[in-house]
Every structure is written in C-alpha cells, then in structure tokens.
Design a protein around this nucleic acid. Sequence first.
DNA 1: GCCGTTTTCGGCCCGACTGTTTTCAGTCG
Length: 575
Amino acid sequence: MPTHNEEIAHAFDEIADLLEIEEANPFRVRAYRNAARSLRGLGQEITELVANGEDLTRLPGIGKDLAAKIQEMIETGKVRTLNELHKEVPAGVEDLLQIPGLGPKRVKALYHSLGIKSVKQLEQALRAGRVRSLSGFGVGIERNILTVIEAHRETEKRFLRANVVPYAEALVTYLKRTRGVKDVVMAGSYRRGRETVGDLDILVTTSGKTATMERFVGYDEVEEVVSKGTTRATVILRNGLQVDLRVVAQQSFGAALYYFTGSKAHNIQVRRIGQQRGLKINEYGVFRGKQRIAGKTEASVFKSVGLPYIPPELRQGRGEIEAAYEKRLPKLVQRADLQGDLHCHTVATDGHAGIREMALAARQHGLKYLAITDHSQHLTIAHGLDSSRLLKQIDEIDRLNDELSGITLLKGIEVDILADGSLDLPDQVLSRLDLVIGAVHNQFHLTRDKQTERILRAMDRPCFTLLAHPSGRLLQKREAYDVDMARIIEQARARGCFLELNSQPQRLDLDEYYCRMAHDEGVMVSINSDAHAEQNFDFLQYGINQARRGWLEKADVLNTLPLRELRARLRSTMR
DNA sequence: GCCGTTTTCGGCCCGACTGTTTTCAGTCG
C-alpha cells in the first residue's frame, strides 16, 4: 500500500495541531506545517524519491528528524510521535481547530476544562451556556462560535473558479463606483488562476478618506459581516462565498497586491529573503529600518530582493524563486497565442449548435481553426457517431470549408477508448480524419496497471493523435482515475502524440503538476475548449490559466501553431 | 524542528480585527 504525500502531510498537520494545543514551541509547530506544505507542493510522490534513494533532507523544510518520520510513515504507515500526542489529547479534539474563531488556546481550554472532544459536544456546551464562564471566553465569543458552527456546517468547501467569476466581476464593478477609490483588483488564489477558490480577496486603493468599507458591507449580496475595521473587512455572501477586502493607500498598491496575491508559501519565502537582506516586507511596502524603499508596484517589490517580476500563476512556492534567480522562468503562454481549438461538439452528438454555428463562434473568438470532434458510437447517451454518420460529417465539413472564410474546420473525432484499449471506430475510417482524440468515458475503476495499459495501448494505435482529459477528474465530483500519468507522458513523448488540457471549468485536466511534467518532458499539450455550445469558447481562458500554473510556454502548446505547421505536426503522428 | 553569502546557535513573516481586558491575548489571513 503506497503512502501518498497527502497522507504524510496530513499526519504532520495533525502533529502540528496537537503540539499547538499542548503549547509546544511555536517554531516547532511551524516546522511541521512547513514540511506538510512542502510535501503537498512537491508534484511528485515522495515514495518515488525514497525508492530512488534520494536524500529527503534536500527538500525544503525537511531536516533529519522529519526525513526519518517520513521514512517511518512509508515503512510502517504511522508515526509514533502522533500516537504519543494522542495520549494527551484524543483524536477529534484537533478538529475543533477547523472552526473559525477557535485556535489552540481556546481548544485546549475547552478540552481540559469541559472535556469537549467534538464539534457536536461543543455545540451542546455552547447552547447550555457552559462555555462563557471559561477564562478568555465570554457571551460574545460563545454566540459567535455558535453562529459560525451553524452557518458553516456545509462549508470548508471551495468554489469552482468559473462559478465565482460573475460574483467577483460584479463586486469589483460595484466597488469601483465609490468616491475616492482608485484601484479595485482581485488578488488571492483568484488572481493566481487557481481552478477553485476558497474565498475572494479584493484590494482597493484610495486617496484620502472614503466610505469604501461601508459601501462594501452594504453590498446587496452580503449576508453576514464577519469583521469590519478601517483597512480590512470580511463578509459572507448569500451563496456562502467569503470575501475579504483590504484598503491601502495608493503608494502601497504594489506591495499590497503582491502581499494579498500570495501564495502564502511564496510570500514567506520572499519575506525571508528580504529579512536576510535586512529588509522588512509587508503590505505597505519594503522597508529598510524606517525607510520605505519600494512598494508602489509589484515589480519594485521583486526588484528589492533582486528578483525579476514573477507572474501570479507561478507564485506557488514550487521552485519559481530559484528559477527566477537563475533566469530560467518560463515565458508563459497567453490566450492571444492560441490559433485554434482542437476539441468541440455539435448537435450531431451532445452539442447544442451546428457545425456552422460553432465555426462562426470560434472565428468570433479570434480562432483561425477549429476541429469538429463529436463522440463515437460507444457513447450512446450522447448519440455518438458510427462510421457512416462520421463519413457524412466529413463531407459536410468539406463543403463548409469551401464556403466559410476566416476559419478552417478540421475533421476529427473524440473516439472512445474501450476497456481493452482498442478504439471505438475502425482504422480505415479514422485515417480519413485530420486528428483523432482518444478518450476514456467508462470503466473508471480499473486497477492502476490495467487503466494505464488500456490508455497506452490506445495511444499506440496508428491514428491516435491526442489524449482527451487525461485523468478523467471532475472537480469536486469525481476523483481522477488511478493511472500512471508519468508513463503516459513518457509514451506520448516516445510516440510523438499529444495530451489535452481540457478547459472545461470542472475538468481542467491535465492538472498543473502534469502540465509541468509534460513541459519538462517536451510533450506538447493542446489547450481545448471541449465546447458544447457557441459561448463555450470562453472556457479557453480557464485552460490558459491552468497552463500558466503548469509553467507552459507557447512552444509547449500544440494549438499555438499556425494551421500549416499544425497540419504537418498532426500528419507526423499518424502512421 | 529547520536552517546558515553575518550564524552550527539563535534566530524563525507580518499586521489587522475582535473581545475581553483595563493594555493585550487570541485568532486569522
């Protein structure tokens, strides 16, 4: 049973929680949290590193002691330290830390004074008014925690980026219409382009006194005001989304934007570098002693520690700072680099528009070519194409290409990869197409070996061009199927075929880790909309966000090629 | 518990808001 990074990270977080409740040295606590974060950001299974005999203490935040604990975890599946800690504080108590407003001190008091070991017990104690008498508590805190427990029973969940975009944009527009307000920008994970966001962070700069805070908490969608000061406020919207607002003076714009964009891991690294250089970096600027030396722009903050500008999508604390110092930051792909789209559907299967309408919509979105790739017969629920319908569609595309200007249609198919790795249509039909996208749409629960073999076999077919949504994940709905993606990427390199980055907001598949692996291995990725309707070409922006988080450059992306070159590349994969 | 272009000891990112306190501890991002 392999041990995954997340399990070890979780164990370290749990140790940190328990140590905190025990009032251990806060820096020791932080060491465990740093190590957990480091493991989560690794992008590679730690068991592989161990198997390759790598020295774990070379990983950031992992020293001799924690390296040994990782070994212990891999070998025995547990850590003695954690079991020891549980003798003092039973399992479950640390869950109380997840409740906003409860930190280690209060949790410790709740457990030691009242014996509270679960959220449920806490709720009962709160209702009985037994909590208010504890020192450090009061009626106010009692009431607040109760409200939070009730309101957040269903939360701790993140929102799909696409679902919060309208809220973010509306709120920004609303705040911009405030007197004295200069800039209103989104920061946080939203700005870093993450596929899901836990909350929205909005930064506002003002000149002089304004009523920004009042206007913010008075927003129509606000259900609850969590906190409100002069420079910072937090609200919960009616849909459960938390929004944090920060207000700073114009001169601090860059420092504040940098600070609130994060990520936390990235910021901590840079502040530490600043510290080594005798600088203090906070949201108001970069300071040497009392003197403010930078902060008007983000670039000035980076410059103060000798770094070039690092795009938000890369600020994850995963090697971007080292890469920046060594001048090997990627030049990230942009939406404008995309020349076409290689995956869409029409009314022939489960799409909502005809070929012509999709072509015109693609052209409207600035694309020069579009591959029509409806489903194949095996996907009956989508009314997939059999050979004869596909051949008819090929003729129709030929006719439309004669007629349409400014957009070229490519003939393709999203063909099912069957359980045995064969494709759902015969080679002689597939060979008439410009490209063949293979996709797994069933049998998600095969063993890792079988699933991997299935896909590798399909990729080996003579007509195979591109692997659609390679992991099959649906964000917040379905886990990726168990598959050896490193082998698939290796096979794509050897075979000369390509991987898709599917831009559907709930897919965004490849994920950022495997994008980076493809980049490192020299495998080209196609950023596709998988549009099922005319407006779905907007999804491409989400794919671009994801690609940028995965360090992809223009040269890594198949559909940045002009049509002629693209055709040549596609032909080269057919054999 | 980690870490080192001032250091193998002595540091460890930084500030805002709330509520319970009479000047600050706890919590959060």
